[in-house]
Design a protein around this nucleic acid. Structure first.
Length: 391
DNA sequence: AAGCTTTGACCCAGC
DNA sequence: CGCTGGGTCAAAGCT
């Protein structure tokens, strides 16, 4: 909505329509209407998403986080564009992102709903994996600005990723970008974030089930990812054990606790990369309805600019939970260790950041900051370490 | 023509 | 028991 650029017919429509444009009208119950534009995600129509650049860089991945392919179709700012911009530091892409959009996670997603969640702060989009037998879902929350607030994955893909080369429908996961080898940004992002979660310490333990694979992918390097992914997935699945191969383990509503790891991506001006920070983690019980989690999230996500990312893991057994606890303690240790090693690094980065935009970020994040929470810290540390695309 | 997004409405769980 | 809010459905429209 904000955009002042071209207005697609649809947009016009929306604007004209009562709801459409302005959204946020609360759609408490029905969602519909409004947010569509903000979403920006779906490229298909929404040209408007304002990219956000903070200081020349875009902090947000698209809402979808996806990186769409660059084929030029309509221009719009799409989410992906942001990424690009990030990279190039400027323009929106023109790309058509719509259909060509590639989900970073490598899967295809279909949007089946959108809703304005409480407070209207964020618009939540619901996506389902288009794979016939896959019931994985993901929820993207975007701020009005079009910034990606957070992503929640529900379930795990039990199927191989669609061919990367094939045009992806929609999805974008900010977090994952493996699909595009080229994307520096993306790769940067991915890597940065990836490393963390996956780190054996954290990831594997934490998100044993679900997101693990996802995370992994993210972590893994863009290039090799593809090949590895399949293997990884398999391995993970095996590890999971409790989950059946084909079924969607996660989606089971029945009281399986799920672990939601909330991470935020920040642009590190200094290193020129991205850093992912864990800013929250919670175990959500009950049905997939992330309500509880949401509350927490809302609290946490305060800042618009950074990219937030939630990883959700479903734990099917208590044992998992326990392991998590263990993990926590382990993490603490790790964290301590890392602090010594990291500290220098992380601090440096911070410092660097502070020079430029960092202020914004820090300001933003700073609030929520991840305090030395034993749990979070480790993650954070990892993230910090992780270097954006290099390494 | 197929697939996807949009969006209003419905359903259901939690309070 | 009613209200609120989140998740999903499904028709319509668009690419």
């Amino acid at each position: 909505m904000v955009s002042s650029e071209e207005v697609s017919p649809k947009e016009l429509q929306k604007r004209q329509s009562p709801d459409g444009g302005t959204d946020t009208a609360q759609q408490t119950r029905g969602s519909g209407g409004d947010a569509s534009q903000q979403e920006g995600i779906p490229p298909s129509n929404a040209p408007e998403k304002p990219l956000e650049n903070t200081g020349g860089r875009i902090l947000q991945l698209d809402k979808e986080g996806s990186v769409s392919s660059l084929t030029p179709r309509k221009l719009s700012h799409t989410p992906g564009s942001d990424l690009h911009s990030l990279q190039s530091g400027q323009e929106r892409w023109s790309p058509s992102i719509m259909r060509e959009k590639v989900s970073e996670d490598g899967y295809r997603w279909r949007k089946y709903g959108q809703k304005l969640v409480k407070g209207n702060e964020f618009i939540r989009s619901y996506y389902k994996c288009t794979h016939p037998s896959c019931q994985v879902k993901k929820q993207l929350e975007c701020s009005h600005d079009g910034k990606l607030a957070d992503i929640v994955y529900i379930g795990e893909h039990e199927h191989p990723k669609p061919q990367p080369n094939l045009p992806q429908a929609v999805g974008c996961d900010p977090s994952i970008v493996e699909e595009k080898p080229d994307n520096l940004l993306l790769s940067g992002v991915e890597e940065s974030q990836a490393p963390n979660p996956i780190e054996p310490t954290t990831t594997s333990q934490i998100s044993t089930v679900t997101s693990s694979e996802f995370v992994k992918r993210v972590l893994s390097e863009p290039n090799r990812i593809r090949d590895e992914i399949d293997d990884d997935q398999r391995l993970k699945q095996r590890k999971k054990g409790d989950c059946n191969d084909d079924s969607t383990p996660l989606d089971k509503p029945t009281g399986e606790p799920r672990l939601v790891i909330q991470t935020k991506c920040e642009v590190d001006t200094v290193s020129d990369g991205y850093r992912w920070r864990k800013y929250g983690q919670k175990l959500v019980k009950g049905n997939p309805n992330p309500r509880m989690a949401r509350q927490v999230l809302n609290e946490e996500k305060v800042m618009p600019s950074p990219i937030y990312h939630d990883m959700v893991a479903y734990n099917s057994s208590d044992s998992n939970i326990k392991s998590e606890e263990k993990m926590n303690s382990e993490l603490r240790n790790i964290w301590k260790e890392s602090i010594s090693g990291h500290e220098s690094r992380s601090t440096e980065q911070h410092d660097g950041e502070s020079r430029t935009e960092s202020k914004e970020k820090s300001a933003a994040c700073g609030d929520r900051t991840i305090t030395p929470d034993p749990e979070s810290s480790p993650y954070e540390q990892h993230m910090l370490n992780s270097k954006p695309g290099l390494s």
